[in-house]
Amino acid sequence: MITQPNHVPERLGLLATSAVDPFLTEELLKGEQVHGGIDLAKVVEPLPEDDARWWVEPIRSLVDDAVFEFREDRTRADAWLAPRLHATLRLTRREAADKRLWNHLALAVAPDYVVWRHLSEPTAKKPERRVAAERFRGPADRQCFSRLWWAAELFRNGSDYEPVDIACGNQDLIHTVLRSELIDHRPTAQALVRLLKSGQVSGGREINGLSVAINTAGATLLYDILAPDQPRDPARLRHWIAEAGSAPPVERYELPSGPDEDPVPEESVAALTRYFAELFETAPVRGRKSGD
């Protein structure tokens, strides 16, 4: 297994996807050898000096802790890391949509983490262990760090990261739902988590069935009407981001707190949870045996 590059930058930067290729070597994808970091640093566009958010150290120490803590069951690292990464790397969505930031994090700062978390288990079909390149520089819902950050962003309930913990504890949920437009509606995301938490829905097949049902009914239904959300106050997030410089390292054992935004209206979550449960229970496909 590889270690971090010899040279880890002190600050986060922007790494264009077109510049990624020389460093995304076969050796790295196989988890055998990582680049040295010096050459990579030359093609990085720097971020503003005066912004404390771009310090690498807090993130680096987070991933190190994750590797140590979850050495037995690396998939469980997602639920632990997602809220803590989100609370450490305080971004606006505008900033988070810039793939170059995630490229840099994955290739320059913590390629060892990407390999540790996503190196495939050998199977009969594919005996060779390998990391999919998309974990380094892929779509937002596939890239190693951006998927965690976005999962935290979309599933947090205001400042409360507990729903993130639940959602990311279920690989099926973040795998199938993160790419769907449905969870852009906050009450929908919270209702999904609540169904998972209550055990009304469990397992990959059921989660998939539920999300297909919601997605299908959502072709003609506007959940925004059934479960209204409140308008956001952007100042709260700005304030939280501004505090990044003076914030202590995030809690390792307790969940940290997110930006002080209003939670989703409880009536909306409750109403939508009932609605989805009913959608799920009345779905004709449920009676089918698996393997059909």
Partner: peptide, 9 residues
């Protein structure tokens, strides 16, 4: 039985 949600929706 292949319908993922009830048909009226």
């Amino acid at each position: 039985t292949s319908h993922p949600v009830r048909t009226t929706l």
